[in-house]
Design a protein around this nucleic acid. Structure first.
Lengths: 200, 200, 200, 200
DNA sequence: TAATAATCGAGACGGTACGTCGCGTCTTCTG
DNA sequence: CAGAAGACGCGACGTACCGTCTCGATTATTA
């Protein structure tokens, strides 16, 4: 996954210790507030006590490495309760909110967004791995909800995902330092489900 | 706006031709599909037939320049009709959609998003200039709509903006190459306004 | 002379101060006894307080630079007296001897010899500039000597040069740390002129 | 001779095939015209189909290996006739001349000369093994010649060696591509023995 | 009309990082 | 054990840009 060709079984195997040192080094630097733009491969290597080649042997460039870091760091998607569409949406939104609160996650995410156009392959990778995975989870929730009569059946499911996830995204990406208060997940879920028109 | 101090009236005045050559050069490069990451100041200067100092005399760095390019290219916000909330939302969404379809706009926008954490000042600038302006426009629409009884009055207006703008954002930013079909603005506006629950 | 293309007259001119700092830095390092193999471009630049590019802008590589250093350092050929062949030979040999005593000259010379086969152009340059110049000087001396009846006229002049210069070379190159005592120039001149057979 | 310590008799013995593959690989590369500067240990190992460690187990570094190659390639010193000083000198010079004509010999020799100052131990090794051996051979010839009255007895024998060997050296080292014609050995021997002054 | 002053293109400056290569050592597995 | 394979930390390679700094040459305003 974004890795450089893994050699056959011959020769000295790659050091897992080095790999860990690199990834944890990046995390440590991000948590210390080092701006992403200052994370050169050279600095990462120095900080991890590792040769540059050891990095390039594993990843093709900074972005591939970042993706690996992102993968290493993020908590697994929380299990869905299945009791209702609303409940599952709240669980999902809450996971996004907590991720947005973590400094380094969002720094990396921003970086990835930035490089999307420059390195389409990288973006595709990220998109398939993270974005699309979530989209599919939500599509499943929606399908169940539509069957159960909890949701309208006259809308394109893909569009519904955007309607649901967009607001959270707006908060975490566009607003930068917008507050992500405790009840946000519930509020948004309820808002989207009920719509903005006055209730009869 | 991001400009470096303009000197007094003594000496040779700055060449507007040079300024145009720079900005249009960047646009041309972007339209040729040059990835943003390869747009070095050096290359921009070479391509515009201009000395590097001529760029630095005007903008403090690459990002400042990009911001200027963004401004130069950006069509003005369309006038709102005022007939109804739905109508004004559709007009606004349509503007976003058209911007998202333009190759270089979105490339620049992605770049800016990327550097937000790294260069907070730049991000603030962009945020204040573009994002916040739109937010205020929509807040005004919402205020009128609430007064007119077209909208619920039990939701935080700031949250409503996210509910409204998020979906469009999801399409243009996160989905990367998602289709932005013709009726999208209307569909989204109607979806958010009505909510996802089945209508009674 | 081994230099990289000098640009036209436009732009900022090359700093002579930097050039001096580089060459004198190399000399200083050599005099401190730093082995030639440890004279990396990187180290030279660091030691001279200069960017690497400033070196590469002037010379194509380490060897070109060394050649410049060699040129910068060596004293001009001493004037010949013209009184006799023997006298002129002694003067020439004495210059070679003194050069051989200087630590860094011989280090550089060894380096150049080493790279002869690898970089034929460099060697040609050195050969034409230094070796051939001396050869021509001696050929002139020999021509005068032959005319004056001081020398045999049945030998190829080119061969005579080898007969004369070879011994000095053997001492300085091959013997490495052979003594180069004070009267050496005279002894060798007399030996070659008289031959090794017993005198009648 | 420059070898690394041979281990005791336990375990798998060193493969002579590997050793031959290495040395012959170097020779093949040199004959193909690969510049000495491009003969990295890594390349030699690859070319010989051998692990790097197999080389380091035998020699301490590139130079030690080169010395071994030189030794492997080197034809033995030719037997001296003993009939006269002139005859023995001609035999010796002819051996030097033939060696100078061989491409890879001279490449290696140049390399060794180059590294003399950098790796004094290596140079000493080469000097003792090759240079000094020849010097002693010639000293023996001279001693016999002096006893037999064929040579002057008023010159330092060490100096006489330089007078005799220098010219050949000048041709093979300094002149680079100077012709080494067939009768050269005789011509030089006669020239040095008779001296350059006109004969009475 | 000259002097002054800031700009222009050009390109050199000291730096930092790039991605590659070779060093000599080490760690794995196979014979 | 030695063999090949190849990863390891290290450091140099030569290139590209960074943002700053001279250059000589323009182009305005001020004296």
């Amino acid at each position: 996954m974004g890795q450089v060709k893994q050699s056959t079984t011959r020769g000295r195997p790659r050091s897992q210790a080095a790999e860990r040192a690199i990834i944890e080094g990046v995390l440590r630097l991000l948590e210390e507030g080092v701006p992403l733009a200052e994370l050169s491969i050279e600095r990462i290597a120095r900080h991890a006590g590792v040769g540059k080649a050891t990095i390039y042997r594993r990843w093709k460039g900074k972005e591939q490495l970042f993706l690996a870091v992102l993968g290493a760091m993020d908590e697994p998607e929380p299990p869905l309760s299945g009791t209702s569409v609303r409940e599952d949406l709240v669980i999902t939104f809450e996971a996004i909110r907590r991720r947005g609160l973590a400094k380094c996650t969002s720094a990396l995410l921003h970086s990835l967004l930035a490089q999307a156009k420059s390195y389409p392959k990288l973006w595709d990778l990220y998109h398939d791995t993270m974005v699309e995975a979530r989209r599919r989870r939500i599509l499943a929730v929606l399908a169940r909800g539509t069957d159960a009569g909890e949701l309208r059946d006259d809308l394109d499911p893909d569009l519904m995902v955007d309607l649901l996830c967009g607001p959270m995204l707006s908060r975490t990406i566009l607003q930068n330092d917008a507050p992500l208060p405790d009840g946000l997940a519930e509020t948004i879920a309820d808002g989207v489900l009920a719509g903005l028109r006055p209730r009869p």
